[in-house]
Design a protein around this nucleic acid. Sequence first.
DNA 1: AATGAATGAGGATTCATTCAT
DNA 2: GATGAATGAATCCTCATTCAT
Lengths: 221, 221, 221, 221
Amino acid sequence: MPRAVREQQMLDAAVRTFGQRGYMAASMDEIAELAGVSKPLVYLYLNSKEDLFTACIRREARALTEAVRAGARPELPADRQLWSGLTAFFTHTARHPDGWAVLHLQARTHGEVFAGEVAAMRAEIVAFVTQLILAAAREAHRDPDFPEREVSGLAEALVGAAESLADWANATSGVTARQSAATLMNFAWAGLGDLMAGRHWSPPEDGDAPGVQAGRTSPVR
Amino acid sequence: MPRAVREQQMLDAAVRTFGQRGYMAASMDEIAELAGVSKPLVYLYLNSKEDLFTACIRREARALTEAVRAGARPELPADRQLWSGLTAFFTHTARHPDGWAVLHLQARTHGEVFAGEVAAMRAEIVAFVTQLILAAAREAHRDPDFPEREVSGLAEALVGAAESLADWANATSGVTARQSAATLMNFAWAGLGDLMAGRHWSPPEDGDAPGVQAGRTSPVR
Amino acid sequence: MPRAVREQQMLDAAVRTFGQRGYMAASMDEIAELAGVSKPLVYLYLNSKEDLFTACIRREARALTEAVRAGARPELPADRQLWSGLTAFFTHTARHPDGWAVLHLQARTHGEVFAGEVAAMRAEIVAFVTQLILAAAREAHRDPDFPEREVSGLAEALVGAAESLADWANATSGVTARQSAATLMNFAWAGLGDLMAGRHWSPPEDGDAPGVQAGRTSPVR
Amino acid sequence: MPRAVREQQMLDAAVRTFGQRGYMAASMDEIAELAGVSKPLVYLYLNSKEDLFTACIRREARALTEAVRAGARPELPADRQLWSGLTAFFTHTARHPDGWAVLHLQARTHGEVFAGEVAAMRAEIVAFVTQLILAAAREAHRDPDFPEREVSGLAEALVGAAESLADWANATSGVTARQSAATLMNFAWAGLGDLMAGRHWSPPEDGDAPGVQAGRTSPVR
DNA sequence: AATGAATGAGGATTCATTCAT
DNA sequence: GATGAATGAATCCTCATTCAT
C-alpha cells in the first residue's frame, strides 16, 4: 500500500481520536490500532505525537478554508457570498465534527504552537469576511471611509459568532447548516447595514463602567 | 493555617495551572507546589483531580455570573443593562484569564461532567440575556408576542459572540473591555432592533437574490 | 475516659479492621475512626502500626488460650478434656471471627515477627494436647514409652486439623462448635487409640515415592 | 526473547515475591526487577497486579493438583493411593514453598476472588480424597451405604490436616515428606477404619463420661 | 488528654518512544 | 516496508507518621 494512502488513513484515525478523546487523552496506541497499522509505522511516517497533531490541524484547517472559499462564489453580491460561505462553513463543520473539534477545541487548548496553527487559518477567514463587509458597503454606496480597524473587529465578532454556532449546532441534533446560517445572517446583517449607514450604538460617556470588584483579584497577566 | 484559607490557595493554584496547561497536562504535583503545600494535602482537602477541577469550575462560574449580574443594574434601560453586563463580562474575563480558560476552553474539552457544569452557568446567562432582549422590545413598544424561542436563539448567538470576543481579547493585547462591549453592541443591537421590528434577512429560495425585506416573512427556523 | 478503656476500644477496632481488611489493607485512619478517636491518640497509646498489630495478636492469643484452658478441666479423663477443650476452641473462634482471622490468617501472612507471636501461642496449645494424648495412653495402661517426638507430631496434626476446621466452620453457616468438635474427635480419637495400642499404619518399603517432577523446578530454598 | 518464556519468568518472580512478602507488600517494582524486566512489560503481559496474582494462583494450583494426581496411581489399593498422594503433596509443597504460600496463605487472605480460585482447587482435591475413602470402605467390605455427606466431612478434615502439616513442615527444618505423610496416615487411617466400621466417638450427653462405643450411635452431625 | 494540620515516601499504572529484525 | 519486544519517565493517589497547640 502506497505511503500517501497509509498516511491519510493514519490522519483519519488521528483526527477521529484527537477529536473525541482530546489531544492528551488520545494514545498513540489507540490511533495506530484505529488506523490498522503498528505503532512504529506511525512514528516512521509522522515522527511524534506533536507532529501528528500538527499534521491533523493543517489538514483540517486546509479542508475547512477550502470548503468556505468554494462555497462563496465571488460573482455574487456580498451578502449572498457571506450567506453561502456561512452555509459551506456550517455544512463542513457538521460533516466533520472531529475535524472541527480538533481545530476549535483541541488545538486551542493544548499549547501555543497548536493554537498558532489555527490562528493562521482563522486570520485568513477573518480577512475574507472583512472584504465581504467592505464590499457590501461599497455595493450599498455607503461611506467607504468607515475605519478598517473597526470593520475587522466586526468581522472577528461575526466569525466568533459563527464558531460558537457551529459548536452549538454540533452539540444539538436537528439543526441544519442553512438554519445556522440564517440565524447568523438575521442576527448580524441588518446590524451591519445600520452600522455602515452610520447608525452606531453609542456607549454612555461614563459612570456606567462597572466598578473594580472587591475581594480576590488575580493580576491581568 | 485554617483549612478554608488553604483551600482557596489550592483553588487559585489549580485554576491557574489548569487554565495554562490544560486539564490533563496539569499535574497535581505542579498545583501543589504552586499552592505551596504538599500533594497529600491537596488530596485531603479536594479528593481527586476530577473533584479539584470541578471545584475550580464551580468557583469560577459563580464568580463570573456574579460579576455579570452585579454589572447589569436592573434600574437601567435594557440596552444600557446589556452594555454594562457585557462590560462586566469582558472586564472579568480579562482580569481572570485563567478562570476564563478553565470555563470556556478546558471544561468543555475534557468530559461531559465538566461540560455540564459550564452548561448550567451558560444557561443562566442566556436566560438573563433573553430577558434583556424582551425588555428592550417592550420598551420600544415592539411586538411583545415575538416568539420566545426565537429570542432564545438570538440570546444564544449573542452570548456565543461575546465568548468568542472574550477569547480574542485575551489573546490580543490592547483591547479593553469597553471596546469589546462596544463592538458587540454595535454588531448586535441594531440587528436585534431590526429583527424585533420584523425585518428579517431572508435566505435565497435557491438561487434568488436576497435582501432585507419589510414585513414578516417565514423565517428559516 | 481512662486510658485502659480507650486502649481496649482501639484494640477492638484494630482487631476488627485487621481481621476483615488484612494487615496491610487496614489503614490507621479507618482504625482510629472505628475506635472513635483521633489518629494521634492511637499513636500515643500504641506507637505504630506494627506495635498495634502485635498488641492485637497478643490480646487475641491470650484470650484464645485462656478460653481453651478454661474449657478443659483437669479433673476429667483425657478424652473428655480434649473434647471440652476443642469445644471451647471452636466456640471461641466462632464468637471472635476477627480475632481468629488475625491470629490464623493475618499474623502468619505478614512477616516473621508476627508469625513468631502466634507460633508461641500455638506451641503452648500443642504441648497441652501432647500431654492429653500421653495421659490418655496412661489411663488406658498402654505403652508409656511411645516416643514423645512422635506424639508431638500427632498433636501438631490434631491442632492443625482443628485450625482448618475452625476456618471452615467460620466460612460455612450453620456449623456449631459441638459439631466441629465431634467431627474432629471422631476423626482422630479412635486412630490415636489404635496408635497407642501399637497398631501403626506402615508405609511401603519404597518404590512408591513419587518421582521428581520433570519441567520447571524451583529450588527448595 | 519470546513472549511465552518471558511470561513464565514473570510468574516465577511473582510467585516468589508474593509468597515471601505477601500480596499487598509485594511491589510490582520488585517483581519486575526479580524477573529481570521492566515494569511496563509486566503490565503489558499480565495487565495488573490482580491479574498477575490470579495467574500465579492458577499456575500453582494446577501444578499442585497435577502433582497429587500423578502421585496417586489408580491401580494401587486405596490406602496406598492415599499414601502416595499425600507423599506427592508434601513433596510438592516442600519443593515449592512460595507456591504453597501463595495458595494457602496469600490467596485466602486477600479478597474473595482469589479465595474462590483456591477453593475450586481444594474442592477438586477433597473430591478425590472422598473417592479414596469410599474405595477403602469397599475394599474392606464395610458398609457401602455410609452417608456420603459424612465422608465428605472427613475428607475435609483430612485435607485440612494435610494443609496444616504442610505449613508446619515448611516452617520446621528436617521434616521429610514421607514423615509428614506417615504421621498423617497414622493419625487418620486407623480412625477412618474405625469410623467405617461404625465405631464413633460419642460426645457426652452433658456431663456424661464418653467412650468409644461399638455399634452405630447417632452422630452429632 | 487530645487533635487539626501537614508531609515524606512509595505504589500501581500509563504512555510516548525506540530497537532489532 | 513493517513489527514484536521493550522501557524511561511521569502521573495519580494513599498511607504511616508527626507537630504545634
